[in-house]
Write a protein that binds this DNA or RNA. Structure first.
Lengths: 224, 224
DNA sequence: TTTTGTATGTTGAAATTTCAACAAAGGGAA
DNA sequence: TTCCCTTTGTTGAAATTTCAACATACAAAA
């Protein structure tokens, strides 16, 4: 378990915990680690919510697929990030999303009840973890606001520019790599892949952006 | 303050608190009540997040307006519901939304720090309130998933049907009233008002739904 | 190197949305 | 009741997206 301490220390759920506390906490929480191949699901749409997942290595994507098979990309998860915590805290019987490994990846799974309820050992860290969890879930809310900021735009052009400018802002640079391929980006923006490719081609020809696969460079920043 | 106890007892933030505890808590939290006229803002886009608001009477709407003046409807708030808690918990310096009274309304405002940090009086209820807050914020996450479920549809027809079926499910009846007028519903669905009206007219003529202002009745339920 | 499969780009027609403008309906006040 | 204002419905043209189909580029495997 110790080999994951570096990423776990970065994880906001365990913020300000010393190594010895972390060791104790993981034992008390009955944390276990699972590995996944690319495309495998760690959580499936319709399942009850029970576990909080922490990405240890690799990356995952949160996707939802509707009745007709249309896919919507909710978020990309990198090491240190959590998933499932909102569903588990809200106690939903059927999660509305799937969480899929976008490459070989590992997660730590913790029963959410063990986090939220103090244990018989009267561990000190439970209260701190609930507070940490509150901040994490609140931060996820902001992520949703960002997705809505982007997808509420009416045209593919506006959605793409809004998304790219947001990424540039978060990376602190006009040149950056996004965690999605074309189809996945289209699923995030809620548009058609072919239309997205066409729009990228147009912007490229106009010299507004440079795009090589997942690498983007913005030449003419834009207000959104 | 006592006249608001009925709604405050229903508020999940104060779950399982007796009246005398509530009295003590409100004093400790330095809660204050404000009134608003229809259209007035209790929270403005760009302001720092500091307060948690609890709707006491009337209703509010969470809206965001982009650079070009396009309005997006995030949610409708009725008595007992909270707003601002995610931004305050995440400590954002500029909230991305405005909260507007959709009729004459009252709110209770509480400094979020007072909820999250135990006070010098060593009040018992702080820990319980943090846990309550966690569940509230988690539930808001589900609300976002629902909005995305609806708005990720590609046509006005699909968005409208998805929204109406979701409302029917929540009301437990195929006949219900929504909290939005046509323009507001269009802003929620992220479509054009005229196109929405046209779609409603079409469904009405086809006998799929009945729609009188904000009252809807679904004759032919639909899978979404 | 060639092969093969996947990802990306391109295109044109059909469907849909947006936009602007106006008509009709409803509600409140005088 | 009439007047006035707001909300909702309607319409047609322009813009945009979707859809299906295929071309091209890329990367991994043989």
């Amino acid at each position: 378990m110790e080999k994951y301490f570096e990423v776990l220390c970065m994880c906001p759920l365990f913020r300000d915990m010393a190594h010895w506390e972390l060791t104790k906490a993981l034992r008390c929480l009955n944390a276990r680690v699972s590995s996944f191949e690319k495309g495998e699901a760690v959580m499936n749409e319709g399942e009850p919510a029970k576990y909080v997942g922490i990405v240890l290595t690799g990356s995952f994507q949160i996707v939802r697929t509707d009745f007709f098979g249309n896919r919507s990309m909710i978020a990309n998860l990198v090491p240190g990030e959590l998933f499932g915590e909102s569903f588990a805290c809200a106690g939903v019987e059927a999660v509305p999303v799937s969480v899929l490994a976008s490459e070989a990846a590992e997660v730590m799974l913790i029963d959410c009840l063990k986090i939220c309820h103090s244990c018989s050992n009267a561990c000190q860290f439970h209260q701190q973890m609930i507070y940490n969890l509150l901040q994490i879930v609140a931060a996820k809310n902001l992520m949703f606001h960002q997705k809505i900021e982007v997808t509420s735009k009416r045209t593919t052009h506006e959605k793409l520019m809004a998304y790219l400018m947001l990424q540039a802002k978060q990376f602190g640079s006009l040149e950056f790599e996004i965690p999605y391929d074309r189809q996945e980006l289209a699923d995030y923006l809620e548009v058609e892949r072919s239309g997205l490719s066409a729009e990228i081609g147009k912007l490229r020809r106009q010299g507004v952006i440079e795009a090589d696969r997942s690498r983007f460079k913005i030449y003419k920043p834009f207000d959104v």
